[in-house]
Computed example of a mutant assay.
Amino acid sequence: MDSHPTKLDYYADMWRLRSESTIVSFLKGDDGRSALVLDSTIFHPQGGGQPADTGFIAVGDQELKFVVEDVRLRDGIVYHYGYVETLAGDGAVESETGKEVRLHVDESRRKLNSRLHSAGHLLDICMKNVGLGLEPGKGYHFPDGPFVEYKGVIPPSEISNKQKELETEANALISKGGEVAVALLPYDEAVEECGGSLPDYIPKESTPRIVKLGTNPGCPCGGTHVHNLSEIISMKVSQIRTKKGVTKVSYTVG
């Protein structure tokens, strides 16, 4: 298979749900699933705490489509996992290498994933705004129980008040609104855009992708987000739990 990295079209345009590409290969993964590899994609692969997009890929002019159930990124290559669905012919995709395809991302799933992801990043901003200088760690932005973990603790006597403060601050920012922007920046510019520092895992020779929510400092992120903070609609901080030096903040969106 061609090892040329897949061009990540969603990196530049997080809100694009339709695009065209060409087939690089059709294969069976190590787990036996069928996988379609393209030269570019608008499908977001699972990663960074965000679930994968789903949808379908229409092949050529035939009554044939590849239903995308899962998407993963490995060594620069995006694998679209799913199955062939056809109304005509034998449904063979193997012979279609180099064929033009049309990509269709499921809109409702992408929008929900983006709202949850943006809400998680908004929570980071709210933590600072209410006087909690805890460093964000793991984020889980799936619909079945989204949360963000922070390094450090909140005293038990303050948890209830801080939970209310976080929710009030989040909804105030959502009501105010603010455009969400994304850019690939030279390292030094990215540092400045993010308030003076970047995580240690980002190489200094890299060009980080920085997402900014409104006028707040940006942060490195590879996922998709809403156009405007108002699209989150509302946010509820459902629980705060502290264990072994880590504070877990669970939330939902309206």
Results as ranks from 00 to 15, higher is better:
Y140S: 02
G178A: 01
C126K: 03
V93T: 04
G139L: 11
G196T: 09
E179N: 14
Y10E: 06
R209T: 00
L173C: 05
A172Q: 10
S95V: 14
G55P: 12
G120N: 13
I23G: 00
E189N: 03
Y150T: 15
G196S: 13
G178I: 01
N228C: 07
I154C: 09
C126Q: 06
V59P: 08
S206E: 08
H104T: 00
Q50D: 12
E69F: 12
R33Q: 08
A119K: 05
E165W: 01
T252P: 00
K236W: 08
P203A: 00
Y140L: 06
L123E: 04
H4K: 10
A172N: 15
F43E: 01
F147T: 12
L64G: 05
Q50E: 15
G29A: 01
Y251L: 01
L36W: 09
S3D: 08
G49I: 14
K236Y: 07
G152K: 09
H4M: 08
I159C: 04
Y83P: 14
F147W: 14
V130Y: 10
Q50K: 13
M235R: 08
S25Y: 07
R109A: 01
L103Q: 15
S40V: 03
A52M: 10
K128V: 11
H227I: 01
H104W: 13
R102E: 14
I125Y: 08
F142Y: 15
C126F: 04
L229G: 12
I210F: 00
I42F: 00
G218V: 11
I233Y: 03
G82V: 01
I154Q: 11
P203D: 00
E100K: 15
S108E: 15
S19C: 01
L229Q: 08
V246R: 07
P143I: 06
H4I: 13
S114E: 12
P217V: 04
A190G: 07
E158H: 05
M14C: 13
G218F: 02
L166H: 04
S95C: 11
K111M: 02
T22H: 08
P146I: 09
G214P: 12
K99C: 15
I23W: 05
M14T: 11
M235I: 10
F56H: 15
I77R: 10
E96Y: 07
L73T: 13
V67D: 13
V153D: 15
V93P: 03
V93Q: 09
N216G: 01
L173T: 00
C219R: 12
S21P: 08
V84A: 12
G32Q: 12
V37Q: 07
K128F: 10
V67C: 02
V211T: 13
S157L: 00
L213D: 06
S108L: 06
E192Q: 06
E100N: 14
L17T: 15
Y10K: 11
R18W: 14
T22V: 09
L184V: 08
G60N: 07
A92N: 05
L123G: 05
F43W: 02
L36T: 07
R16Y: 04
R110Y: 01
G254T: 04
D106C: 02
G137A: 10
